[in-house]
Every structure is written in structure tokens, then in C-alpha cells.
Computed example of a mutant assay.
Amino acid sequence: MTHAYHGVPARAIPRRPIPTPRGCATTSALTSALSLALTALVATMAPGAAMAADAASYPTKPIRLVVPFPAGGSTDAVARLIGEKLSQSMGQQVVVDNRPGAAGNIGTDQVAKAAPDGYTLALTTSGPLANNKYLYKQMPFDADKDLAPVVLVGEIPLVIVSTDKTPAASLKEFMALAKSAPGKYSVGNPGKGTIGHLAFELWRHNAKVDLLGVPYKGDTPAMADLMGGSIHAIIAPITAFIPQIQGGKMRGLAVTSAKRFAGLPDIPTAREQGVDIDASVWFAVAGPAGMPRPVVDKLNKEINAILSSPEARAKLEQYGAIVGGGSPDKLGSLMRDESAKWKQVVETANIALD
């Protein structure tokens, strides 16, 4: 077969590839590389963008606020107030769910194991957040690792009270009596492992005084024995004792806060009287570890606004609480500091609840 071009056979004509314009191969490779880089960048940014979008629209459904104590107590009452105000400000219902048991561990554990999306929160106390892990050998969660601090709600100082049956008008005088008769003077507390019990052990250790500790099942039986003269004093959260002190039935020897309690300003602090006791029960909002920081910050801002309202302050003061507030990091620092302090007390006094 002869090609029509100059009569040259077809097989003799070299089949040269069509030349690529200068730079096309390089441009194609560069385009491919840029495409891959852009895809990687979008993939990297996507979680952050989604997180920001979620925080901006949060909440889009009801929020569960777990209270790990029975209904009717001070923690429950404060939780219901915060839940009501959050429902109004955030546009979604906040449902308070009481899950009592094991000194607050059961309900707090449910929150620790929940999805970290901001829709399951806890209003819990210093026990589950700082103290309990040293009191219980089998803890279902680790507060440091499994919970995200949101905001401190309030602190209730402890008070040391007696009656006129004990010839001491102040803690300083009570200490003089105790040192004059080692082992004679008894101090009740609301129960083994409670903050009253831990504060008693801290008091006894720091002051190097021989006092007899008497644990009760709550404030009421301790108050009955104090009024009857069976014990000489009680150390416990101030809430239940405010009416008794105001009515003159009991005598406040000292409060264990850094400053005097505004509701009973005539009672000096323990430190004013030379006794190093700093103890309070505090309560806070926390969520599961891993909650997006924008969601944590949004909750923190809303709850801080609630705590600054006259209604919230009045409710907290009704229960003998000092209003909290502040950043999530402030609460995280409190959890760590309190945990370290009470760890030493629990180990020194050899306290165990299981």
C-alpha cells in the first residue's frame, strides 16, 4: 500500500506524538498538587467549622441537668432555679433529673459517661468533683479526666456551733477548754466522709488538739444531741444552723471560710482566732470531658449572667451560700486544689467509705 503523500509507503512514515505545549505538564502537576492541598486543608478545617456552627446554634434540643442528690435539698433547689433561667435565656427546656446515691457518685457518673455534646450536664458538689475519689476505693469515674468544668455556682462555709451548756463563747475559748482536758470534748459532724467530718480531721490535725469526733446520719440528729448536752459542739455546713444561731438557741463559735459569712457577720472566722481551718462545700456545673470549648464558654456566660441576678443571689443566700461564678478554668483550678488538700486529710485520718 502506498501513501498518497509523495508515494511513500504508510509504514515508512514515522508516527510522532503530538507535541505538548511548553509548560503544560508542569501546570497539570501543579494543579493536581494544589487540589490535594486544598482538599487536605478543608478536611482539617471542617471539624473546627462544624464545631463553631454547632456552638452558634446550640442548643437545638432540651438539655438534661442531672442533680446527683434527692429532690428538695439545697443543691436541687439551686439546680431548678438555674434550669428555669437557662430555659428562658437559651430557648430550650432544661430538665432537672435527680439521680441520687453513693454521695453523688451515681448521678455524676451518668454525666461523665454521656455524649460530650452539651446536652447532658451535672449540677454536682465538691464530693464527686474533688473528695470522693479518696474516700471510695471503687470510683466509677475520674473527675479530672472524665468531666469538663463549666462554672462554680456557689460555696457554703462550715460553722462550728455549741450551746450555753459549753462554757465557751468563741472557738479560741473552746480550744482552751479542749487543751485543758484532752479527749473530753466531743464534736459532732453530719456523717463519715462528709465535709464536716473531713473539716473536723483537718481542725484536729492542724491545731494538734485531742477532740472526740462523733459522726451522725445528718444534721438533725447531731443538733438534737447538741441541744441535749450529749456532745459539746458540731462542725457542719452553715445552712441548717442559721435559724438556730439567729434565734439564740445555738452559739456560732467560728466559720471556716476565708472571710466572715455575710449572713452572720458577728461570727469570726477560725483563722481570725488562730485556728487554720479552710473548708466549704461547693457546687458547680460540669459536663462530660470532650465538650466543645465554644459550648462550654456559652454555658459559662449564660450561668454567670444568672448568678449575677438579684433573684439567684437571694436564693443562694437563703441556703447559706456565697455566690460563685468565674471561668471554667477557675473551677478546674478549684477542683485540683481541693482534691490535693483533702487527699492528705483522708490519708492521714485513714478514712474509707467502702
Rank of each mutant, 00 (worst) to 15 (best):
M1P: 09
Y5Q: 11
H6A: 15
V8A: 02
A10K: 04
P14W: 09
I18S: 15
R22K: 15
T31Q: 14
L34T: 09
S35T: 15
A40N: 03
M45V: 07
A46P: 00
A53D: 13
A53C: 06
D54F: 11
Y58C: 08
P59Q: 08
P59W: 06
P62T: 12
V67F: 00
S74M: 03
S74H: 03
A77W: 05
A77V: 05
L81K: 03
L86S: 01
D97L: 07
A102M: 14
N105D: 05
G107N: 00
D109A: 15
D109R: 04
V111R: 01
K113N: 09
A114D: 08
A115F: 04
P128C: 00
P128H: 07
A130P: 01
Q138D: 15
M139H: 12
P140E: 10
F141Q: 01
K145R: 14
D146T: 09
L147Q: 01
A148T: 15
P149K: 03
V150T: 05
S162N: 12
L171W: 06
S180K: 15
A181H: 12
A181D: 13
G183N: 12
K184L: 12
P190Y: 02
G191L: 08
H197R: 03
A199H: 04
H205I: 01
L211R: 00
D219M: 07
D225I: 02
I231H: 04
H232K: 10
A236S: 15
P237F: 04
G248F: 04
K249S: 11
L253Q: 04
V255K: 01
K259C: 08
K259A: 14
R260K: 13
L264A: 05
D266R: 06
D266E: 14
S280A: 12
V281E: 13
W282K: 02
A284R: 01
P288G: 15
G290Q: 10
P294V: 08
V296H: 03
D297W: 01
L299H: 09
E302F: 01
E311W: 02
R313Q: 14
A314K: 14
K315Q: 14
Y319E: 04
S327Q: 11
K330L: 11
D337W: 06
V345Y: 02
I351A: 01
